[in-house]
Amino acid sequence: MPCTVEQALTAAMARLAPSSDSAKLDAQVLLLDILDKPRSFLFSWPDYQLTEQQQLRFERNCQRREQGEPIAHITGTREFWSLPLKVNSTTLIPRPDTETLVEYALTLNLASDAKVLDLGTGSGAIALALASEMPAWQVIGVDRVEEAVVLAEHNRQCLNIVNAEFKLSNWFSAVVRQKFALIVSNPPYIEANDEHLQQGDVRFEPLSALVAEDDGMADIKQIITQARDYLTTNGYLLIEHGYQQGINVRRFFAQMSYINILTIKDYGGNDRVTLAQWTN
């Protein structure tokens, strides 16, 4: 028998509580996705009765969440920098900490028509956030996974952002004879034996987008090394990294002769993004 909004939420919260530390929010997000209503609807219409089909979908999605599947994969969307993005299991789910990179990139003193490159763009989150804020910038996002490029382009079209483009490229492999005032990246940086890979949402995300050799530093070092050939004089490179990697990232930037090296903390107070400038 179909139930009301209030009844559905109460049952879902009790069901999800043993497996989620955000059971109430999870239940609300899953129900709103099915109802296609704003959050205020849950409080304004607690006696609204779900159809049988809505109730079956809600129960099925709660079961998926109960088994640990990320909310973003169940709903197919995730908000980043206030942009609604389609997401799927071929890319990382955009995370709030990555907004630290976007926020700092926007403070840099770049030309109004600066060329920007986003390496390992995934869903296109970083590239589209920067392009939406700076409509005269020319932003290119690249990824070595074809499905990711298709997904990023879908998000670009849905958001009607005209100053970004996406292409298939293994880091710089398809970026030919171009120079950029800013290069940004959220590369794989987790060690292969990190216990967190067996916990939470990352269990459902592609390992290739998470794990790197050399204690998580392999891709970071490759980007720092190769970016020197693609940066304009006084161009910037911003890289997201693990909270314990700041000192190693700064050290390698210095070894590669970058200057003005700075690590920025995320909203939780952890080292998260390191910036450096190339002058040669």
Rank of each mutant, 00 (worst) to 15 (best):
C158P: 00
L197P: 00
Y258N: 02
D36W: 02
L56F: 00
F252P: 01
L42I: 11
S185F: 03
A105C: 13
M217F: 11
Y243W: 14
F80C: 06
T233C: 11
E147G: 05
A27T: 02
R39Q: 08
N109M: 08
A152E: 00
P187M: 01
R65F: 13
N248V: 12
I247L: 12
R65V: 05
S185Q: 03
T10I: 08
A125E: 09
P188M: 03
T75F: 04
A127T: 08
S89Q: 14
L119P: 01
R203I: 10
F166N: 08
S132A: 11
V211N: 03
W45P: 01
D21C: 06
P38W: 09
L83G: 09
A152V: 07
V150Y: 07
D201Y: 05
R95Q: 12
S257V: 13
K221A: 01
V184L: 09
L16M: 04
H73L: 15
P206G: 05
A105G: 03
T75W: 10
K37M: 15
F43R: 06
V102E: 02
A125C: 09
Q222Y: 10
R78F: 00
L159K: 03
D113H: 03
A212K: 02
G242K: 04
L159S: 01
L32S: 05
A17L: 09
K221M: 01
P70E: 05
A27H: 06
E146P: 04
N163I: 10
P187A: 09
Y48N: 04
N155R: 12
K24H: 10
A276P: 03
Q255H: 07
F253Q: 00
E146T: 11
R177N: 15
V176Y: 13
L168V: 14
E6D: 10
V116N: 00
R156W: 13
K24D: 11
A11N: 11
P46M: 10
E59A: 07
G124P: 07
L30D: 01
D21S: 05
E99L: 03
L238N: 00
V145E: 14
I161Y: 02
I183S: 03
L110M: 06
L35G: 10
N61F: 15
G216V: 03
D215Q: 14
I74C: 09
P135R: 09
R250I: 03
E103K: 12
N248H: 10
T232D: 14
L108C: 05
H241V: 10
R272P: 07
Y243R: 07
T274Q: 09
N155Y: 11
D26S: 12
R64F: 02
D26E: 01
S169L: 07
M1T: 11
R156L: 06
I183W: 02
N248M: 13
V142C: 02
D21R: 12
A129V: 10
F204T: 02
F43M: 11
L130K: 06
E147V: 05
G268H: 12
Q28K: 14
L32A: 04
E213V: 05
F172E: 02
S112L: 14
Y48H: 14
K265R: 14
R228D: 00
Q138R: 09
I161D: 07
E99Y: 05
F43W: 12
L56T: 12
Y243M: 04
E79Q: 11
